[in-house]
């Protein structure tokens, strides 16, 4: 079940592949030259490299992670009552004033985040496709693989991505939120978390975020070359603390609404 070189091979290379096909019959392989030519020409380019794409994923992931930390801190203001929460939401719009015009600071953040989401998703898609192509045949004898957080990075990422779409339509634009009132985020939040589906979607997504951050933060450190044997424990710990704090912090809001602490 040998695999032919992938289709993006140049014509000249295709000819070379044919030429060496006859050499494949020999049983001794290790050390023999060019029984199978590489599928493409080696490139030192940043974006064409798996490490380059991983670097883009790591940096964009860290930008989103920094945003999540700020986001959860803002969310927790819900426990100080509607004035403080709505006041904070208003401040986000006048952030940077008077240097920045109304909502410019907010839009700046949105643009950076959108770019980060885009870069993260594109590199994830390209790397995933490559990874799947690199290992097309499964072992007959399956064994338990890596940790749950590691195995669910791809699907978890897709779930979180879909959640973000719903979340923006629900609490930013109000498109899918019946009775949405612009400028009254406290009431909108209570409204969303008074529905069973609102709570379910949110809590499941936040668990996915936690798992994603758990493996993602540590991986980003490895990709950016910050990780080493000495820092291993500290990085793992920091990843777990971040994941747990974010998940607990975000879930505290629907739990608060459900238990009547926030009303």
């Amino acid at each position: 079940m040998a695999l032919a070189p992938s289709k993006d091979t140049a014509t000249a290379k295709g000819a070379a592949a044919k030429g060496s096909a006859s050499a494949k019959g020999t049983a001794s392989v290790k050390g023999t030259a060019s029984a199978r030519p590489p599928s493409r020409t080696p490139s030192r380019g940043f974006w064409s490299s798996t490490i380059g794409k991983k670097t883009v994923m790591a940096v964009s992931g860290l930008i989103m992670l920094a945003y999540l930390v700020a986001h959860v801190a803002g969310n927790l203001k819900v426990f100080f009552g509607p004035e403080e929460f709505n006041g904070y939401a208003h401040w986000l719009r006048v952030m940077g004033a008077p240097v920045l015009h109304h909502e410019w600071g907010l839009w700046l953040a949105r643009i950076v985040l959108l770019a980060a989401v885009g870069a993260h998703a594109v590199s994830a898609y390209q790397l995933s496709r490559r990874d799947i192509r690199a290992r097309p045949t499964r072992y007959v004898h399956r064994r338990k693989g890596s940790s749950y957080a590691t195995r669910t990075m791809r699907w978890g990422g897709i779930i979180v991505g879909l959640f973000i779409v719903w979340h923006v339509l629900d609490l930013t634009t109000g498109t899918v939120h019946p009775g949405f009132e612009s400028g009254r985020p406290y009431q909108n939040v209570i409204d969303t978390f008074s529905t069973w589906y609102g709570n379910t979607i949110y809590i499941v997504a936040m668990l996915a975020v936690g798992l994603h951050v758990r493996h993602g933060f540590w991986s980003a450190a490895q990709t950016l070359g910050v990780g080493n044997a000495r820092r291993e424990r500290a990085l793992r710990l920091l990843a777990n603390v971040l994941a747990l704090a974010l998940t607990a912090g975000f879930i505290a809001v629907p739990v608060g609404v459900m238990t009547g602490v926030v009303n």
Binding site: S6, T50, I51, K54, G145, S146
Partner: peptide, 21 residues
Amino acid sequence: VLDMVAQMDAEGFGGCTLTGE
């Protein structure tokens, strides 16, 4: 490092997702 990584990618190996396997 640049050439070995480039060759590794050209050979059609996948990227690292740090599963530790």
